[in-house]
Design a binder for these strands. Structure first.
Length: 196
DNA sequence: TCCGCGATCGTCT
DNA sequence: GACGATCGCGGAC
């Protein structure tokens, strides 16, 4: 039930990983052993040579995890407040990753709601990268660099609901620099997608 | 529903 | 010293 996706999954081309992650399951274990889970419904790919990528100007203390082995979580702080969840792809020193932008909450919804400050509208709990980081209680100090393929990790990615869904492909969101490539993917019609 | 703006702080210039 | 891979609020329509 809890078998993580193998490291080979993350060694596919990064754009393929971004597409293939849709419909997969994120499993987060928090205090008291409570499970918070959700389906990945929106992703973005960040590739080598992309000016919008944190890895563009080379390896630094912040982005070091991006240059490590595939299948680990790269978490960073955005705008001084939000913790953003990425999965590292490609070979070591490539500096490629996929940003998880939104999930559909499945298990632990009440804990997720508490983490999000008690927001009532279930569709606004995890429909954005900063929101899902807060919902799953992810922090740079705690979860950056964690191995998503290790069953003992408090953050895992496993198989989800299968591949019987339609995928929409668009340009990425929120960038002020960089090429406008079609590197954003989301599940058509899903209510937790951040923007349509 | 949409648009504009301020919050907030680690990171790199 | 400036800048975000964002969010939530307030006001307009």
């Amino acid at each position: 039930m809890n078998v993580p996706l193998p490291r080979s999954f993350y060694l596919q081309p990064t754009v393929e990983v971004a597409r293939a992650l849709l419909g997969k399951m994120v499993i987060r274990t928090v205090a008291g052993g409570r499970r918070l889970t959700g389906l990945i419904v929106e992703t973005e790919a960040y590739l080598t040579g992309d000016p919008a990528s944190h890895a563009y100007r080379g390896k630094t203390p912040r982005n070091a995890v991006m240059f490590g082995p595939a299948g680990h979580a790269y978490i960073y702080i955005s705008y001084g407040v939000h913790s953003m969840l990425n999965v590292v792809t490609a070979g070591e020193n490539m500096g490629e990753a996929v940003l998880i932008r939104a999930i559909e909450p499945i298990e632990g919804v009440e804990t997720i709601r508490t983490n999000r400050g008690g927001i009532e509208n279930v569709y606004r709990l995890t429909n954005g990268p900063g929101k899902l980081g807060q919902a799953l209680a992810l922090t740079v100090n705690g979860e950056n660099g964690i191995d998503l393929t290790d069953p003992r990790s408090t953050l895992l990615v496993t198989d989800g609901q299968g591949d019987d869904h339609e995928i929409v492909t668009t340009t990425r969101i929120g960038l002020t620099v960089g090429v406008e490539a079609m590197w954003r993917f989301y599940l058509k019609g899903n209510r937790w997608v951040s923007r349509r």
